[in-house]
């Protein structure tokens, strides 16, 4: 396991992306992105849907390799790690997937116990204690015998969160934690993320397009659009930003620098073409 290297002091950012580019086929998803994730804080990465925000988390987790640039996690270049080191690094990162991604053939208890069983040789009694503790944090201790199909979307995400923190990670990555949630479960999740970050001394990265919720708990925000970081800063500064793209996204205006229409042929030209041919 790559221990905390001595080069990484307490004030250095936990994760840095230096000039990262990434393309899927001909589609450029990132074009020279620079991001720093400070330790112990909640960093939010905002952007319109389909803007490659999930790709960003996969780059951090080493599931994808950047075309150019460098991804540093815990002071290591992710691309330079071998498979064993990469897997060891991932054990110190918890990730909450958009759908929860619970293992459907295991019940809630076994899902949370899964990383413990895979990576530790703890006795059964110890595993039970840890699992119940984690489930208590997310308020689902009494749902431990349910199967994922019996859970609501919000509950599944909370179980997945309990699983993500089962091994006491250094950092938790959240992929669209608020998408498709009713206001109550959204509120629960917002408070949970905030509470966990403080109580467990975590570092959190939230990838989202829900501006209000994210802004209410984030310490630092990045806005990504068309493969570039448009602006970054604390939520208050972002909200009052005068940059048109930022203003459009933060206030949810339909049209602006990020166009409402899918780029292509002009409407009038298209209509005329149809008549003439």
């Amino acid at each position: 396991m790559p221990a905390q290297p001595h080069t990484l002091s307490a004030h250095d950012p936990l994760v840095t992306l230096e000039d990262v580019s990434f393309a899927r086929g001909a589609r450029v998803i990132f074009d020279g992105v620079n991001i720093e994730i400070p330790r112990g804080r909640i960093t939010a990465i905002l952007g319109p849907s389909g803007g490659g925000k999930t790709t960003l988390l996969r780059l951090i987790g080493g599931q994808l390799a950047p075309a150019s640039g460098k991804v540093n996690v815990f002071g290591h270049d992710v691309q330079a790690l071998n498979t064993a080191e990469l897997f060891a690094m991932r054990r110190r990162i918890g990730m909450l997937f958009q759908s929860g991604a619970l293992l459907t053939d295991l019940d809630v208890f076994e899902n949370v116990a899964f990383p413990l069983r895979e990576h530790t040789n703890l006795p059964e009694s110890m595993i039970r204690t840890i699992v119940l503790m984690k489930l208590e944090v997310v308020g689902l201790r009494n749902a431990r015998n349910l199967y994922p199909r019996e859970l609501s979307g919000g509950m599944a995400r909370r179980v997945a969160l309990a699983r993500a923190i089962a091994l006491d990670p250094l950092m938790v990555l959240y992929d669209e934690p608020f998408a498709g949630q009713d206001p109550i479960s959204m509120g629960i999740l917002v408070r949970l993320i905030k509470k966990l970050n403080e109580a467990l001394n975590l570092t959190s990265v939230i990838v989202s397009h829900d501006v209000t919720e994210t802004a209410s708990i984030a310490d630092q925000m990045y806005l990504i659009a068309e493969g570039k970081v448009v602006e970054s800063g604390p939520p208050a500064a972002m909200k009052s930003s005068s940059t048109p793209a930022v203003a459009q996204f933060m206030r949810g205006l339909p049209d602006g620098p990020m166009p409402f229409h899918f780029p292509g042929v002009d409407y009038l030209t298209d209509l005329v073409d149809g008549v003439s041919s």
Binding site: R58, G61, Q63, F87, R90, R91, M95, F97, A101, L103
Partner: peptide, 17 residues
């Protein structure tokens, strides 16, 4: 379906092959 419901990427991110 495990792949479609992100269970396989989740395993990878948990450091499980």
């Amino acid at each position: 379906l495990m792949k479609a419901t992100e269970q396989i990427p989740a395993l990878e991110m948990m450091g499980v092959d």
